[in-house]
């Protein structure tokens, strides 16, 4: 794996659990989604990892709650990668927006809102991006269903 300085990173991200390895670099697990903006600012300003590109931003429905997944990479060295994960509760699906830190987060966050219904506080233009504007529900949630959807028989 790339020459990410893990110990320096761990020191900077004191509240986070850092797991080495993984297909997209080390995994940083944040205890709360509200830690995301501060963590991203730290990662950006770090001279050593210098992780300044948000390559992908998505979410998972884990049943009891959601998990935000960020894939970050350094523009100076694309082998320097990092995955950041943060939980979001099902009852209040809210997370702070990362648009101020990564401009590319704007459409990613709209897509996550569209598919999972997670609201990003501080987002400049949080509307549906792919589905029609009058769509009801969030189709990538595991408990989603509508009149038009046909369940596979036997499942």
């Amino acid at each position: 794996m790339p020459d990410l300085n893990l110990s320096a990173l761990q020191k900077a991200l004191s509240s986070a659990a850092l797991e080495p390895g993984g297909a997209f670099g080390p995994v940083v697990r944040l205890p709360l989604a509200s830690d995301l903006p501060a963590t991203c600012q730290q990662l950006r300003s770090q001279p050593e990892p210098g992780i300044d590109v948000l390559e992908d931003y998505t979410a998972l429905d884990l049943g009891e709650g959601f998990e935000l997944v960020l894939h970050l990479v350094s523009s100076a060295d694309v082998t320097r990668r990092l995955t950041v994960k943060a939980p979001v509760s099902r009852q209040t699906p809210e997370a702070p927006s990362l648009v101020a830190c990564y401009g590319s987060a704007e459409w990613y966050e709209r897509e996550i809102f569209d598919m999972f219904g997670i609201r990003f506080t501080g987002h400049p233009d949080l509307r549906r991006i792919l589905l029609p504007e009058d769509w009801e529900g969030y189709p990538l949630r595991k408990d989603y269903s509508d009149d038009k959807l046909l369940k596979r028989p036997g499942n």
């Binding site: 589905l131 189709p139 989603y144 509508d146 038009k148 959807l149 046909l150 369940k151 596979r152 028989p153 499942n155």
Partner: peptide, 10 residues
């Protein structure tokens, strides 16, 4: 996309 698709017209 016949089954289990929220977006596809069958």
């Amino acid at each position: 996309f016949h089954f289990d698709s929220y977006g596809t017209v069958r």
